[in-house]
Amino acid sequence: MSKSNSDNHWLVRPKTIRLLWVTMAVVLALTVFAQLFIKVKGYVGVDSWFAFGAYYGFLSCVAMVLLAKLLGLFLKRSEQYYDEREDNA
């Protein structure tokens, strides 16, 4: 139960993490190149473009994270925000 155990867990070693990134890159590349052999049926036109799922998924996520970040500037408050306002209620 000591903390030193955790640092040696195989899943968090830098070597494993590097390996995971490489595996991920290979899998990502495979899903894109598989489209050379497998036809993706398009329903609305654009979705039949080559690797549409890949860049559409990636870009939508980037857009959503940035939008969330932007809205966060206006919406984020300290955790005590409501407590301070409701104590006198």
Binding site: M24, V27, L28, T31, V32, A34, Q35, I38, K39, V40, K41, D47, A51, F52, G53, A54, Y55, Y56, G57, F58, S60, C61, V62, V65
Partner: peptide
């Protein structure tokens, strides 16, 4: 096959993001 591939691309690349 096409549908599975499309969704795998979509999901795995959002994982990358």
């Amino acid at each position: 096959a096409g549908k599975v591939l499309f969704y795998l691309q979509l999901l795995l690349f959002s994982g990358l993001a």
